[in-house]
């Protein structure tokens, strides 16, 4: 690998990292504005025009607050918890294809950090690791509410990971590859996987709500029962990391859903556009469309949060084990039969 290639890769990583953080930052603002809209309020409007600087003000507040480590907490693990949460949230973006290859002169720049041939499984690995941040933090706090939150997070995460994996298997039968770059390429134009796998998409969507701990599945931080859940004892930027990790996870899972099921950077009529605007602008338009899809999904996450109330814990487990898993297995069987007889 040449030095310029390394520099380009490094630049791409820095840009993606920056965008993830920026999107997460403004997701907090968007969430408050959208909540205000649903509840017929104004929302944050003091910092800057339309309250646009509110995330910066919140960030400054988080950094300047006093940091408290409880006397009976395991102090090392108490710090490891939020660090692990934010770390696992950030590394998921490495395998997502953000756009078609960018051709500048004779240089081809792939808009994907790495296209490993087990891309989907890498995402799953990162997701399954994410729960450790919550578990370790909740346990190290030495507080019964935190511990209950951590235990809830663990069992919820494990339960929904199974149906998530099963819903993906049906998709893999259709695509025949595990690489996210390849899957995005196959959905050229309007051949989006959601048209072939509607049930699989709905299963994946429900599971990603559960995996990111968003309402209606935010039992680990259920205020009405557990004070603050796993982050009851946290203050200042360590609390900020937990909240921030949730928004980055939401961004990454929206990107994964858009890539796997909604065509990624593909859109109908992309060939016509590519022929008219040239090889540099066309991939960038695709990337813009990809981001539009991601933002729609993030909006959907927030829409659900402010519309649907939280499940009870036994309802959550019933849904995961008795509805989603049988449905996912049936989906695999039906997909397999259809592929065998009609292809």
């Amino acid at each position: 690998m040449e030095l310029t290639d390394i520099a380009i890769k490094f630049g791409l990583i820095v840009i993606i990292f920056g965008i993830s953080l920026l999107v997460a930052m403004y997701s907090t603002y968007a969430e408050r504005k959208i909540a205000a809209f649903f509840q017929d309020r104004v929302g944050p409007n003091r910092a800057g025009p339309f309250g646009i600087l509110q995330p910066l003000a919140d960030g400054a507040k988080m950094f300047l607050k006093e940091e408290i480590i409880p006397a009976n907490a395991t102090s090392f693990l108490f710090i490891v918890g939020p660090s692990l949460a934010i770390l696992t949230a950030c590394i998921g973006s490495a395998v997502i294809p953000w756009g078609q290859d960018l051709v500048i002169g004779d240089k081809v720049i792939p808009l994907q950090v790495t296209d490993i041939n087990v891309g989907i499984l890498y995402i799953f690995g990162v997701v399954s690791l994410g729960v450790y941040g919550v578990m370790i933090g909740g346990w190290a706090s030495n507080n019964k509410y935190s511990l209950l939150g951590a235990i809830r997070a663990a069992s919820q995460n494990i339960s929904y990971e199974i149906s998530m994996g099963l819903s993906i298997i049906a998709l893999l039968l259709v695509t025949g590859t595990l690489s996210l770059g390849e899957i995005a390429k196959q959905q050229h134009g309007w051949h989006w996987n959601v048209l072939y796998q509607p049930v699989g998409f709905i299963l994946f969507l429900v599971c990603s709500f559960a995996e990111t701990n968003r309402t209606p599945f935010d039992l680990p931080e259920c205020e009405t029962e557990l004070v603050g859940g796993y982050h009851t004892e946290y203050s200042s930027m360590k609390l900020g990391f937990y909240l921030f990790a949730e928004y980055i996870n939401m961004f990454i899972s929206s990107a994964v859903m858009a890539t796997l099921y909604w065509g990624g950077y593909n859109y109908p009529g992309m060939d016509w556009v590519a022929a008219h605007v040239g090889p540099v602008a066309a991939p960038l338009i695709g990337t813009a469309i990809f981001f539009a899809k991601i933002f729609l999904f993030i909006f959907f996450f927030m829409w659900v949060r402010w519309t649907i109330p939280r499940f009870r814990y036994d309802q959550l487990m019933d849904l995961g084990w008795k509805t989603l898993i049988p449905l996912a297995i049936a989906n695999i069987v039906v997909t397999g039969i259809v592929i065998t007889f009609f292809n």
Partner: peptide, 17 residues
Amino acid sequence: IVNFIVYMGAILVLFLY
């Protein structure tokens, strides 16, 4: 990656649980 998902991500979470 399977070792990562199954052992680190699932079985040890249950152990810890």
